[in-house]
Design a protein around this nucleic acid. Sequence first.
RNA 1: GCUUCUUUAGCUCAGUUGGUUAGAGCAUCUGACUGUUAAUCAGAGGGUCCCUGGUUCGAGCCCAGGAAGGAGCGCCA
Length: 479
Amino acid sequence: MERTKIIDVLRSEATGSDVLVKGWVRSFRANRFIALNDGSTIKNIQAVVDFENFDEAILKKISTGAALAVTGTLIASQGSGQAVEIQVKEIEVLGEADPEELRKTVMQPKRHSLEFLREQAHLRFRTNTFGAVFRIRHAVAFAIHKFFNDRGFFYLHTPIITGSDAEGAGEMFRISTLDPINPPLTEDGEVDYKQDFFGKQVNLTVSGQLEAELGAMALGQVYTFGPTFRAENSNTSRHLAEFWMIEPEVAFNNLKDNMDLTEDFLKYIADYVLTNCEDDLQFLHDREVKEDSQKPTAERNELNLMDRLKFVVDNEFKRLTYTEAIEVLKRSKPYKKGKFKYDVEWGIDLQSEHERYLVEKEFKCPVILTDYPSEIKAFYMRQNDDGKTVAAMDVLFPGIGEIVGGSQREERLDMLRKKCGDFNVSEEELDWYLDTRRFGTAEHAGFGLGFERMVMFVTGMTNIRDVIPFPRTPQNAEF
RNA sequence: GCUUCUUUAGCUCAGUUGGUUAGAGCAUCUGACUGUUAAUCAGAGGGUCCCUGGUUCGAGCCCAGGAAGGAGCGCCA
């Protein structure tokens, strides 16, 4: 008989017919009820064993975590917790799981802290929470490709190994095949990278944007979706050393087009998850509601998970300029009462506390801030006519902070070269990039979305390490 | 990197003013029961009290240093 996935068995109306399912035991109750899960859905199928007339040797091997092949008749359940169940005819134990060993793992049938689950990242897939998170993570990735494909974007693979650190987006991981103990040296006693694999110093990418711009200035609309690496010593719940980033880039788009695209995009993803991940979302929703009920009122979510997603889908994002934001902050209660740790003044970079105030207290919805002072943003962002600000935008989400950073790019060659000078960026190294401005330059814009931050938002997980299968953070590269 | 909190059984945690044999629930094992939904009942096993040093007649508890983890901040996506 062919195996049927549990998600299909549960949907099936064919009671009375025989099925074969394979999966892992979640629990074995009363020597009679096996809860079996195969990962196709968060739901388990209940397999009912007539233990009085069953091989005891097999029953003994059925324990939490074991892999089974179960053959039996699909029947309407006599119990109230499920619509259908399998009346077992035959069980083959595919892989045993020693209970004495299993009790040391996250697979034991009880609630665990997320910290403990993280220590066994290789086993946490078997839990309800992480099963749900990673099925949703897939759905978000798929939705992203679908969104762009449906709009005629081309998926562009930008290099993971790069020779430029021009963007200055952060500390980089160096890649080398040189002997680390005795590297070849130049006459000056420096490491001689000319003898390295690529004949120069190279790093893991911190952004595919500059390369994506080249694609956009020929293919029109492109996006990247790949791994990104930052060697920052960041110890927070929203930073990873290895994460995935989506960077669309569109020729002939200005900042307004860019904002519209971003908003459509984020709404599309939230909506996709709401309509396609019902069971997993409901589980995470209930989990959060339960957790919240044990917290003091002040620490609870104002909106629950489902409502937060619906809110993003149904409401316009609040758009305002940096200059307006500074004014709002200066009029705010915490500012007047001296509650902010950092001062608010035009020209400063907004601190987390300021962004959180705007998103969580003042507007209570996603916020797009635009037109930041030139000095605090990257060299490639387009200079506004006021001479002080650039056509930048940051999208701020409640609880997560900056989820998207983007801009209209500086397309005027002379202006871009001036900015290179101002920001100490080597024109020589970026000659290939400047060529786009030499040959048929045109206005264009794009943004970068932190994939894991989006997954955090749609799953309600509050630590970024819990939305990536194998988190890489300072001092941690396990498994 | 900075601030702050935490570290006691496989897990989650309690542990009084420094006092003799360190506890609970869950998990595991044994037995009973058997249409259960984190099954129930009875019993059992299970401890480098994070590490190092100090104070003390005596330290899980006090002091110093260190490590790991959480939360917040900075850097950012």
